[in-house]
């Protein structure tokens, strides 16, 4: 297990380096105005050259890359150009990332808490009213664009339950609606997958044998079916974590949460190369982290994945 995680970590770090290098290279292909900021118009051509040389942008590309990595290891992502001029990128992202992470992870936790049991119940009552109700909910969430029901929730639910319309850090009640709205879609997908895999497992031969040997239906569900059905679920976890973090742009702007959601769009529009670079780095790290966690979770629950020996059975 230890070796397996170590190996996966090393692989991920390698992947991360490749991504960073590609992003770095791509941004060097962007117009240089992105580094000059609002002052560009007032500068003469010579002044611009001096400014860019001072920034190190006239060095050979390989030296620039080296410097970039050097700064990166010291936790320096450069300074924002015109999003918030001269403020370090790390502190711009740092201010906002906590909000996005908290809401993202909160929504994932909430949807797991609701979606998995819902899926289990639906599988157990396949074809009965609860199953149909759940299916209706899933179809609704998948078919109706998120923006529509987000808006409706904000318009009506706030009204009916007298909840605050906007996010307020110091008023926990104002956190409820954004969290709930964010959790709706992943809850539906967890329930859907859980139900599907449970039904799949319930039709397998080993369940028939377990029944024949006299295992109670309840024991059967929890000690045989649940774990087996959860294995494929483990793969979806990282993907949904990513989705809830990056997909929070809507919610964040609706409830004016000072999160990261809109930051990338803003930074791109204002051609703030350093901020874009920093954000891509954060997003890709989160994605890779999600994948590792998914793999580890799979390895923990499925004995058929041989660890660290490079020979997988599945």
């Amino acid at each position: 297990m230890f070796w397996y995680i170590g190996k996966r970590l090393l692989q991920s770090i390698l992947t991360l380096f490749i991504i960073i290098t590609i992003v770095f290279s791509l941004l060097r292909l962007m117009p240089e105005e992105g580094y000059l900021g609002a002052a560009a118009e007032k500068m003469s051509f010579e002044q611009q050259e001096i400014y860019l040389t001072n920034l190190g942008l006239r060095d050979p590309l390989i030296v620039q890359l080296g410097n970039f990595y050097g700064d990166l290891f010291q936790g320096d992502l450069g300074k924002s150009v015109n999003y918030r001029t001269d403020v370090p990128v790390t502190s711009i992202i740092g201010d906002k990332i906590m909000y996005s992470l908290l809401f993202g992870l909160g929504a994932v936790a909430l949807s797991l808490l609701l979606g998995v049991p819902l899926g289990i119940l639906m599988a157990q009552m396949k074809g009965r009213w609860l199953d149909r109700l759940g299916t209706g909910y899933i179809v609704f969430v998948v078919a109706v664009p998120a923006a529509v029901y987000y808006l409706f929730i904000q318009m009506y639910i706030t009204d009916i339950f007298k909840l605050p319309m906007l996010f307020d850090e110091y008023n926990p009640i104002s956190w409820v609606l954004p969290l709930l709205s964010m959790a709706l879609a992943p809850t539906a997908s967890y329930a859907m997958w859980m139900r599907r895999y449970m039904v799949d497992e319930l039709n397998k031969d080993y369940i028939k044998l377990a029944r024949a040997k006299g295992v109670k239906e309840r024991t059967l569900m929890f000690s045989h079916v649940l774990r087996n059905a959860f294995i494929p679920m483990a793969q979806y976890l990282p993907a949904t974590i990513l989705f809830t973090i990056t997909g929070s742009i809507y919610i964040e702007s609706l409830y004016s949460i000072p999160g990261m959601g809109g930051l990338l769009v803003d930074a791109i529009q204002r051609q703030d190369n350093t901020v874009v670079q920093g954000l891509v780095l954060v997003f890709s790290s989160l994605g890779i982290l999600g994948l590792i966690l998914g793999d580890i979770a799979m390895a923990l629950v499925d004995p058929r994945i041989k660890l660290g020996k490079g020979e997988s059975v599945r």
Binding site: K208, L209, A210, A212, G214, K216, N228, D302, P303, R304
Partner: peptide, 27 residues
């Protein structure tokens, strides 16, 4: 189910057809 649990396994047990799929892969 309660009735049948007195019979299943205890009195009458079964050897199933396909051993490749008849065992729980995770136990």
């Amino acid at each position: 189910e309660e009735d049948w649990l007195k019979i299943r396994g205890k009195e009458i047990a079964m050897v199933t057809q396909d051993p490749m799929t008849s065992l729980n892969p995770l136990k």
